[in-house]
Design a protein around this nucleic acid. Structure first.
Lengths: 156, 156
DNA sequence: CGATAATTGTTAACCTAGTAAACGATCTCG
DNA sequence: CGAGATCGTTTACTAGGTTAACAATTATCG
């Protein structure tokens, strides 16, 4: 016997790699969990959640954005966006401003505090990504983003 | 004017790329949503969900697996696993078998139907991944899996 | 013009995929 | 033996969505 067995149950016995391990979806989910949990740790309980941060990004960077626009850009339903915008408005990071040309819609205008909060959060998030992705060099990280963007469908 | 403006509100105006778009976490989430939605479309409402499929994989490939073992391997809590194992048992894909040496634990033994279902699902999932990842060639796909595994922390 | 259709933001009810805390039963070990 | 750890489980809770319906408003077209 060349290899000592330690336990009777559930030993690894250097398996020849499960098919599961070669699946992109599975590895994507596992990597996402790793990154997300570090994100929460860095941002804390009071911090912006990932989805709220991305919403804020669009609000800050896109003039005259409406909720329907934003929902489309984030790839979620209009109804699901309401809570996100409520939170950003509650924090004082944006205002729903009436648009005279179309009284159905309300443009999402960032406040100064919103822009500031966006910049502060972005700095934290960049540091978090540098930390949690320390095992990837710059080229690998760039390659990863490139491949992920490709999956999203370059022109969608 | 070289470029015609179409709408007054929320135009793209070939923006100089938001910081958001360079974040790994954001792109990971977006890519995951794309893949997961194709997964659901392929597997249907009666099909195994991703997490149930991965659980079944471990059950089929790992002899004498216990629920605690499985939870650790999947990276979820023991309590969260109960429903997954309940579903697999309900479908007749595994049995909880008593272990005389330790009456706290019940080993998870795959049934023949379980092995068959695993193989059938794997074939479907491989086809799904080929389809949803058609924009990546073999080398890119391999590279992607390599990078994602690296994030998970090669030895964990 | 006027009727019909589409869009906007919103609420309500629901679903999935988890977590955290507590529990009884059982095992381990000083 | 007794203290502590582990196992599977239940219960309550949370995050992050979805779908369906609604009133208000705007767009379209015969």
């Amino acid at each position: 016997m060349t290899r000592t067995r330690r336990k009777a149950r559930a030993d690894d016995m250097d398996a020849p790699e499960m098919a599961l391990e070669t699946l992109v979806g599975y590895n994507l989910k596992r990597a996402y969990v790793v990154i997300q949990s570090d994100y929460r740790a860095v941002m804390g309980d009071e911090g912006l959640s990932p989805r709220v941060f991305s919403a804020l990004t669009f609000v800050v960077e896109t003039p005259n954005l409406t909720q329907s626009d934003l929902a489309r850009r984030l790839g979620i339903e209009r109804s699901g966006l309401v809570a996100i915008v409520d939170e950003l408005e509650g924090r004082g990071y944006l205002n729903r401003v009436a648009v005279p040309q179309d009284r159905r819609i309300q443009a999402l205008a960032p406040t100064d505090a919103g822009v500031q909060a966006y910049e502060a959060a972005l700095a934290l998030i960049n540091a978090h990504e540098d930390r949690v992705l320390h095992m990837l060099d710059a080229k690998e990280r760039e390659q990863l983003v490139y491949l992920l963007k490709k999956i999203r469908g370059n022109g969608e």
